[in-house]
Amino acid sequence: MIALEEEIRASRKALEDEILASRRVLTDEVNACRRALTAIRTRSNSLSPAAMLPSDILALIFDSLALAELPGLASHQYRETPNAQHTILGWITVTHVCSRWRQVALYIPTLWREVTPELGFAWFNRILTRSQQTPISV
């Protein structure tokens, strides 16, 4: 009887291990698919005129947007039901569009010249870092 119970326990353990291993394999496959999808999207962006605009043109677009839509302030007047994150971030939303836009925006210190108190301390530090030596206004 005891031997049978041990056998059942061992079988269950083996089965659980097998399920766990299968899950790991599936998770790896899902991650590989996600990475492949990201690579395809990056290639797709390389054919997108907007994603591949020269950096200095993107800088001008972002600069123009930064003047018009300050973080924490500007979105209310443009949206009937503003999304909370969007409303807070204003022009900074462009850094979430694609990796190239983010890369360009993060490396132009003059874009990060305004700090809005509503964004909080973490953002204050982040903007301070990104603005580098550019004078900022609060």
């Binding site: 990201t38 990056t42 797709s44 997108s48 994603a51 018009a68 949206r79 569009v97 694609c98 836009w101």
Partner: peptide, 17 residues
């Protein structure tokens, strides 16, 4: 201006990569 991330992608034909 005033658009969400998704809306910006759609307007300008950019993928989330």
């Amino acid at each position: 201006r005033g658009k969400t991330t998704e809306e910006m992608r759609e307007i300008l034909g950019v993928e989330n990569d």
